[in-house]
């Protein structure tokens, strides 16, 4: 972000200067130069107006006036484009070797097809993120806890997300011994959302899975006590689904 912020005002100044030069040539007024050198784009527009007003008075070059106005809408687009480019310029993450290590261990133990995708989540403090296939989800979770080099013995968070095309489970694991974190995800079919329960591996997944069942309607295989944990047993529908119709629309 800092790089970007530094770049923005500079580019604005440059644009501005070129415009100032344009108006200067049109109006032939060298006195307006110091007035038309503000740094922020907000202050810039009135000063441009001033110079164009003066251009009106002194010369009759009305056709040149719309030019700076046409340029203005372009300016906000530039930083947006930069934002999109930015993640590519970040370079390799310091956590990339750690992720590669996890992926290696999983692939050597469970085969190449166990992992659907593995990446570093740049938005979330460079968190290594592994997407499992529904078949290998339970096996990977078990391996993450039991393997000597991984030892993710603490389940920090578990919840589901409705992406409309599919459901997703998000599991955040932490290793008390190795002091590492990893996110494990799995995509679940939305029409028949069934996935293996992690409660046999971590007891702490019990209630969070019930919550995912309650609010999103995801079924868990081998769950000891899957029930409507927050809502009543007779509640219809799953509120956190995107197509849920509220009981009382006005609420």
């Amino acid at each position: 972000m800092t790089d970007e912020n530094q770049n923005q005002p500079q580019s604005n100044e440059e644009n501005e200067k070129s415009k100032v030069e344009e108006t200067k040539n049109q109006a032939d007024e060298s006195q307006k130069e110091p007035k038309a050198e503000p740094t922020t784009p907000k202050e810039e527009s009135p000063s441009n107006k001033e110079s164009t007003k003066n251009a009106k008075e002194d010369t009759s070059a009305k056709t040149d006036k719309p030019k700076p106005k046409k340029d203005r809408p372009k300016r906000p687009r530039k930083p947006r484009a930069k934002k999109e480019e930015k993640p590519e310029d970040l370079g390799p993450s310091p956590n990339q070797p750690i992720l590669d290590h996890y992926v290696n261990v999983i692939k050597t133990n469970l085969g190449e097809e166990a992992i659907e995708e593995a990446s570093i989540n740049r938005n979330s403090k460079d968190l290594p993120t592994i997407v499992a296939t529904p078949k290998s989800y339970f096996q990977i979770a078990k391996l993450l806890r039991d393997h000597e080099e991984l030892q993710f013995n603490y389940l920090s968070d578990l919840h589901g997300i409705d992406y409309e095309t599919h459901m997703e489970m998000y599991v955040y694991l932490y290793s008390m011994t190795k002091k590492y974190s990893v996110a494990l995800k799995v995509k679940v079919d939305r029409e028949h959302p069934v996935v293996d329960s992690l409660t046999p591996i971590w007891q702490g997944a019990n209630w969070p899975e019930s919550e995912a069942y309650d609010l999103l309607g995801i079924q868990f295989n081998n769950h000891p006590d899957l029930k409507r944990i927050l809502l009543g047993e007779d509640w219809e529908g799953y509120p956190l689904r995107k197509d849920y119709e509220p009981y009382d629309v006005e609420v």
Binding site: N121, R122, N123, S124, K125, L127, S156, D157, H159, Y170, Y172, A183
Partner: peptide
């Protein structure tokens, strides 16, 4: 994208996704 952060509340680990 997605983000998960966690901090220490008086009752334990509070996270936000």
């Amino acid at each position: 994208g997605e983000v998960y952060v966690r901090i220490e509340s008086p009752r334990g680990e509070i996270g936000c996704y």
